[in-house]
């Protein structure tokens, strides 16, 4: 479950270029490791972040985990459906479970993210 056409981070986020915006979510592997999500602390629209900033928190029954900004960017929109249905991330991590969209994002920075192939290797090395 590592779709082509997305960029990945070592923290198990994905990013997808969509028109002029960048869409962010967490990977299938991440949602599986976290288990049933119970709460998503969505970021404020307009929040300006640097690459690697803790951007928001997802909670499962057992733990809270940070989600980081993949590149320097500004939050343009959030997936409001997650406020009442965080399980969308479990059911459809690359689709309905998207978390937020960025504008003014760092296009150069995107090149330093992982390709699907590199992310696959990362998962293989983590499970080894």
């Amino acid at each position: 479950m590592i779709p082509e056409g997305l960029c990945y981070t070592k923290d198990h986020e994905w990013a997808r270029v969509d028109g002029g915006e960048l869409v962010l979510g967490i990977t299938h592997h991440a949602q599986q490791a976290l288990g049933d999500l119970t709460y998503v602390e969505l970021p404020k629209i307009g929040k300006v972040c640097k690459a690697g900033d803790a951007l928001l928190v997802v909670e499962s029954h057992k733990a809270a985990s940070d989600v980081y900004a993949p590149v320097a960017s500004t939050v343009a929109a959030v997936n409001q459906a997650l406020a009442d249905a965080p399980e969308l991330i479990n059911h459809d991590p690359y689709g309905q479970g998207w978390i937020c969209r960025f504008k003014d994002w760092d296009r150069e920075g995107l090149k330093s993210l992982l390709t699907p192939e590199a992310y696959r290797k990362l998962l293989a090395s983590e499970s080894a």
Partner: peptide
Amino acid sequence: PVQYEGIQS
């Protein structure tokens, strides 16, 4: 076992 299918279900 902490979970099989998922805590929620």
